[in-house]
Amino acid sequence: MSSTDYQGLLQKAVRAGDIEETVDIIQKVLQEGINPVAIVDEGLIPAIRTMGDLFEQGEVFLPHLMRAAEALKKGMALVSPLIEETTADQGVANTVIMGTVEGDIHDIGKSIVALLLSASGFNVVDLGASVPVNKFIGAVEDRTGDSIIVGMSALLTTTMSQQKLVIQKLTEKGLREKVKVMVGGACVSREWAAEIGADGYGLNAQEAVRLALEFA
């Protein structure tokens, strides 16, 4: 099975919520030596992102999205231990405070990034979805002795301004210099990250991990 073949087939299986097919494809490509991080980044994430977009557009409904999410979880259960094995020796000890910003309940992509960060040796504090500005600030204040990265996800254009508000509040509280801020999400761009004063932008889960490792 070629790289291109597996990507398309895996994405199709996840979108269809076909757990058996999702597991079968992943098992086969793992045997062929495909990098487990690539499986997540090139197969699982694009599939669930597409489903999220279709859901927002009203082209699929909640049961379809939930079935796709279940297939995603089964796939992640296969690759997560392998990712942990390959990254366990990096010895990173930084704390990453992760959350989807207030007003945005999408948290599958953010959760995948959190998983990969944890597997890479980071101490991940996952605040969940629709996280208020003050909750981000409180999480930073609670970890005064740590080296901290704040990661914020936004999938809606109506909520991305919350990323800017968190950075502004960090500055007001005198906390901005002690943290690195990275942002991501379907509606977020490198230009937006620069505009709001973030330290970096992750286009996908793999890039977010790479960025965090640079900050460490």
Rank of each mutant, 00 (worst) to 15 (best):
L170T: 01
A88T: 09
N204Y: 10
G103L: 04
A193I: 08
E191T: 14
T100Q: 02
K74R: 05
V40T: 06
Q206I: 05
I108V: 02
S80C: 08
N204D: 02
V14T: 00
A129D: 05
G75I: 00
T95K: 14
G138V: 14
L203W: 12
R210C: 05
G174T: 15
S153A: 07
V14E: 00
L78P: 04
T4M: 11
T157Q: 10
V179W: 09
K169V: 13
I112E: 01
Q57G: 10
P46N: 03
I137T: 07
L156H: 07
R49W: 07
M76K: 00
S189D: 12
G17S: 03
Q163L: 05
M76T: 15
F55L: 03
V23Y: 01
V14N: 00
A114I: 14
S80K: 08
I45V: 14
D5P: 13
E42K: 13
R176L: 13
L155M: 08
K110V: 03
V79Q: 03
V166T: 06
V179K: 04
G52R: 00
S111R: 00
A193Q: 03
T87A: 03
V14K: 01
V14D: 00
M182Q: 12
M160K: 12
V181C: 04
E214P: 08
L127P: 01
G184M: 08
A154R: 01
G151D: 10
I196W: 03
D41P: 01
S120L: 09
W192N: 07
M98V: 05
L175F: 13
L65F: 04
F61P: 11
L155S: 07
A193V: 04
N35D: 09
S161W: 02
V113H: 10
Q7I: 15
D5V: 15
G151F: 09
Y201H: 03
L156P: 06
K73G: 04
I149T: 02
G184D: 13
A68S: 01
K73W: 12
M66I: 00
T100Y: 02
V166K: 01
W192S: 11
A88K: 14
E172V: 06
T159G: 04
K169M: 14
Y6M: 03
K28S: 05
R210I: 01
A77E: 02
Q168A: 05
R49D: 03
G8P: 10
L211R: 15
E85P: 15
L213N: 10
F61L: 14
P46E: 02
T50M: 04
I148M: 05
P36Q: 04
S147D: 15
G17D: 05
D89T: 11
L44I: 00
R176P: 03
T158A: 04
V60M: 06
D18W: 12
F55I: 05
D18V: 07
A114E: 15
N204L: 06
V125T: 08
P81H: 05
G121D: 01
T50G: 03
L170Y: 06
I45G: 08
A71L: 03
S189N: 09
S130M: 04
L175C: 13
F55H: 06
S161I: 07
N94C: 11
S2L: 03
T86I: 14
T4R: 04
I196R: 07
E195R: 12
Q90T: 15
E172A: 00
S80M: 09
G128W: 00
V124F: 08
M51P: 01
N204H: 08
